[in-house]
């Protein structure tokens, strides 16, 4: 294994450990959503909203569409998408952590959605067939991945021609943050 690959694995492990160790957060990402959207998400799921934006409305979902939520976490955006695409549509949420996937399944059952499933997988190697979804949504997880181009290429692969993606993520200024901040382990997970 090259030094570069070891570094990528270290990043992945840092991120996985940080999310695995979370203990009932208070839903900081919920501030981006309006009351109508929040009413569609079970209260227990709102506390696990850790995104950095609100991409689903910008996806302009239509009934019957197939959607993939990459790095879905506890599934809030997937649940919103499931409500938008309706019974004739389908949503698949993918997350690295089995514990987060289990949480998302629980919240989906609580919300009463039969048209959404959650699977464990890496965004760099999605367990989704080529050209099989109409829309990809992603909220705050590209920056957590070491191989960003690979993640974006995977999103492109699974989209049907003419498909679209709505992505929210953190970006930084052109001038870099201090090295002590950038190299801090928790700066990779946040």
């Amino acid at each position: 294994m090259t030094r570069d690959l070891m570094f990528q694995d270290e990043i992945k492990q840092l991120v996985a450990d940080a999310y695995h160790d979370l203990d009932e957060p208070d839903g900081p990402g919920s501030v981006f959503y309006d009351d109508t959207q929040l009413a569609r998400i079970p209260p227990s799921a709102r506390s696990w909203m850790l995104g950095v934006g609100n991409p689903v409305p910008h996806a302009r979902l239509r009934p019957g569409e197939h959607v993939a939520d990459l790095g879905c976490g506890a599934g809030a955006d997937a649940l919103l998408a499931a409500a938008e695409v309706g019974d004739t549509g389908h949503v698949v949420g993918v997350d690295l952590l089995p514990s987060m996937v289990e949480r998302a399944r629980w919240f989906a059952a609580e919300a009463g959605h039969d048209n959404v499933e959650f699977v464990t997988g890496e965004m760099e190697s999605l367990p989704i067939p080529d050209a099989s979804v109409d829309v990809v949504v992603n909220n705050g997880s590209v920056n957590l991945c070491a191989r960003k181009s690979r993640v974006l290429a995977e999103a492109f692969r699974i989209l049907r021609p003419g498909g679209r993606m709505a992505v929210a993520d953190l970006t930084i200024h052109e001038e870099e943050l201090p090295a002590e901040v950038v190299t801090h382990p928790s700066a990779w997970a946040g």
Partner: peptide
Amino acid sequence: LIELMHRLLPEERQDQVAIAITATVVK
């Protein structure tokens, strides 16, 4: 980490450490 950023970042930078963007693209 928050304390470190408080200490190292200039005050004028502390309200905008990053920018959260939402973007749409098409295949």
